[in-house]
Every structure is written in structure tokens, then in C-alpha cells.
Amino acid sequence: MSEAPLLEVVDLVKTYRLPRTSPFTPHGRRPALAGVSFSIVAGHSSGIVGESGSGKSTLARIALALDKPDSGAVRLEGRSLFDLPHHELRALRAHMQMIFQDPYGSLDPRQRVERIVAEPLAALGAAGRAERSARVAASLEAVGLRASDASKYPHEFSGGQRQRIAIARALITRPKLVVADEPVSALDVSVQAQALNLMSDLQQQAGVTFLLISHDLAVVAHICETTAVMYRGRIVEIGPTEELFGAPAHPYTRELVDATPRFDRPTRVAPAAEGRNGLETTGCPYAARCAFAQSRCLKEAPDLEDLAGRARRAACWFPLT
């Protein structure tokens, strides 16, 4: 086992080009990631939470080299993905797989399950026909499906079963890292639990480390040891999941925690920051929404820094205690 972390993401920046509004104006630019760094140690699953537009899905794609950042690096066990030659990157993909949100869109409707699940093996050009079938069967059984399901088409399965097929596909190369982008959001509550338990099992038994991306704090808390909260392309707080949600240091984390529906109390709404709506500042990106913002927050952007006495880092001038 190498000393390098399983996944290391260094100062990622990504800006999307927007369509022109007229032929004479330059393309607009929308920053998706504005300098994101973190690392994941093998065996310690991490979560990323944030609202739409926070850049979390962009981060997932770049972490798997499905998209290129404008700058920054991604290293899997110390090997920089964007500096590798094509064929080596392809071989490395066996160690990192992905689970997608939509169990309807992520399986090719015109292929049989056997071919879908075997796709990562086919991409490696590894394993003969017989071995492939055997591994597909083993992978399907590992996620609680039957080996005989291999000859069916995706439309013959329910949403929850389809998500299992997608998980079986991600597992077939026995990857070390699995990036899961909203893996249970599209599933019914009664089926979500099956998928979450399966993910827990995979962590413990198959040694899979997850990078779990979700808007649902409860889902992330269920799987991940460490969690990062993203807001507008930056990590605003990162730390051990339980403490992070138990005692948020960043006002945005607190807003998320309060807003999450629970059985034991109504959702709470953060006090509105009156009169600063749509405010563009050079300071903290959250300042326009923050009920605790002071004049410094509007002028200077805080960096992600260690909080004294807490196993936590937050990007806030006035962290909550």
C-alpha cells in the first residue's frame, strides 16, 4: 500500500463557457469550481453536499477525469490523471468507477444487463468470454440480483433494481474508489434504504471507498466519515461528518442543517439577510445570504482555514461556535 492518499484533488478551477447572447458579445463565463482541494484516504468515505450550482457534480466528473479542469490536478494513489498517457488513464479507470443519479438514464436501453455490467471489463479488454460471464454473475449476486438477470433488458427492472445493476457495473473491476453522484435521490424511500445498506456493505466487505455527492445530508451522514460543504464552487467547511452537522461552524452549513426536513421538528429557515439580495461582492460569496455577515465579509473573501481546537476547517471570518 502506497503512502499517497487514495484520491487527492488540488486547487481545481473550472469555468464553463455560456452560449453567446448575441453574435457580437463575448461568451459569458460561469465559474463552476473556484479552487477546490481535498483528499480522501483509502477506507474513509467522503461526502460532498451543496445546492444545485455549487459545483459538486462538476467536481465528481473531474475527479474521474471525465472532464478537464482549467487548472489544478487530480491524483489517484499519487498518479496525476491529467498527465497520464491515454492508454494508462484507461487502464487506471479500473480502479475508479462511477454511479449515477438516474437509474433510467444510466443504462443503455438497447443492451442486455450482461453487456451493461461487463462494460468496464470490455473497456479494459480483459477477461475472456467465460470469465466475463462469471464475473458478471458474481457482481450481480453481490448487489442482491440473480445471475439469471444478466440476460434481461433494463426496462424489465424497477428503479431500485436498475440502480443495483449500475452498482454491479461499477463494482465489476473491484475498484478502490467509487464516485456516486446522488445515487439514491431518484429512488422511492422504501427502495433508498436497500441501496444505502448495500453501499455500507460494500465499504465494509469489498473495501470500496466512496466519494458520495448528494444534496441530502442524512444520506451523506449515513455513509461518509468526512464531509465537505460546497457553496458556489468552493468548499466552505470540511470535517468529520457527525461534528460538522452537529455543530456547524459555517453559517451556510447551519442553514443546510436547519433546512433539512426531520420527523422531530419543522424545518427551520435561516433569518433572511434583508436588502443584500443579488449583491455582488469581492468578499465572501455567501455574504449576500448570510444573516451573520459583517462589513469585513463583504470586502474580503475568507480562506479555508483550521478552526482552533476543532477537527475542522471552515472558510468564514466569524465561525459559529
Binding site: 444520506v219 442543517v257 420527523f263
Partner: peptide
């Protein structure tokens, strides 16, 4: 899963 419940 409930917020605050133990992981795993």
C-alpha cells in the same frame, strides 16, 4: 436515514 443517527 435520520440526521444525527450513527453512521453505517
Amino acid at each position: 436515514p435520520q440526521p444525527g443517527a450513527s453512521r453505517g
